[in-house]
Amino acid sequence: MPAASAPVFRLYLLRHAKAAWALPGQKDFDRTLDDTGYADAEIVADMAADKGLRPDLVLCSTAVRCRQTADALRRSMTEELDIRYVDELYSGSANVYRDIIGSQDPALSAIMLVGHNPVIEDILRDVIGEDAANKVAAAGYPPGALAAIDFKTRPGDGILPLGILAAWLDPDGRSR
């Protein structure tokens, strides 16, 4: 049996971990992870590191809860992990996320987005299909969950080709 070929490109989709409710007068942007969120971010980051799921580049929403989630990756993987903060990931639509993915350096073989629902889930459903998405996220994309999606062709011009779910990690310990 021939060996499976390596993917041309891998996309990681990480929804920020569970956040606290906004305090009176606090902006949504400034919401922090709650105690469960901090723990869940560490769990998923450790699981990803243990499985060798490491991106070349992390593109992270500038919202506090996303930055805190990405910090867990840096602690679990390496201090040299390239994390760049992108304002448009905070309130951008699925089309904005697609454009950001497609505009990255073609030399990168794996990027991760740390962002928000419903867009993270929309992208997952678009690229792996409803049936596959329902198998791992029937009740929605859980906070702190990470999907690794492999592609045979590179995304570009705001278009994401169909991909295959290579791994699914969530803080409740479910992995695939």
Score class of each variant (00 low, 15 high):
residue 123 I to E: 10
residue 121 E to F: 07
residue 72 A to K: 12
residue 111 I to L: 11
residue 63 A to I: 08
residue 64 V to I: 07
residue 102 G to I: 06
residue 104 Q to R: 14
residue 108 L to P: 07
residue 99 D to L: 06
residue 68 Q to E: 15
residue 91 S to V: 05
residue 119 V to N: 09
residue 117 N to A: 05
residue 94 A to C: 06
residue 86 V to I: 14
residue 108 L to A: 07
residue 64 V to Y: 00
residue 67 R to A: 08
residue 72 A to E: 08
residue 86 V to M: 08
residue 100 I to M: 03
residue 74 R to D: 05
residue 111 I to V: 12
residue 67 R to Y: 01
residue 122 D to R: 05
residue 88 E to H: 08
residue 120 I to W: 00
residue 80 E to I: 02
residue 89 L to R: 11
residue 89 L to N: 14
residue 70 A to M: 10
residue 104 Q to M: 13
residue 114 V to Q: 06
residue 65 R to D: 11
residue 69 T to I: 05
residue 115 G to C: 06
residue 117 N to I: 07
residue 89 L to M: 12
residue 122 D to H: 05
residue 87 D to P: 04
residue 91 S to Q: 10
residue 85 Y to G: 08
residue 82 D to P: 11
residue 95 N to L: 13
residue 83 I to A: 10
residue 101 I to A: 10
residue 106 P to K: 10
residue 70 A to V: 13
residue 111 I to A: 08
residue 67 R to M: 03
residue 92 G to M: 02
residue 101 I to R: 06
residue 116 H to I: 04
residue 76 S to F: 07
residue 86 V to C: 13
residue 97 Y to S: 02
residue 74 R to Y: 07
residue 115 G to D: 11
residue 87 D to A: 13
residue 95 N to P: 05
residue 119 V to F: 01
residue 102 G to D: 05
residue 105 D to R: 14
residue 76 S to D: 04
residue 67 R to I: 03
residue 66 C to T: 15
residue 117 N to H: 06
residue 73 L to A: 13
residue 99 D to M: 11
residue 80 E to F: 02
residue 108 L to D: 07
residue 80 E to R: 15
residue 75 R to D: 06
residue 101 I to N: 00
residue 97 Y to N: 03
residue 65 R to K: 09
residue 78 T to F: 00
residue 71 D to F: 00
residue 79 E to C: 03
residue 63 A to N: 06
residue 71 D to T: 08
residue 96 V to P: 00
residue 68 Q to H: 11
residue 118 P to G: 10
residue 80 E to D: 15
residue 64 V to F: 01
residue 123 I to A: 01
residue 108 L to Y: 15
residue 72 A to G: 13
residue 123 I to F: 09
residue 112 M to H: 06
residue 99 D to V: 01
residue 112 M to V: 05
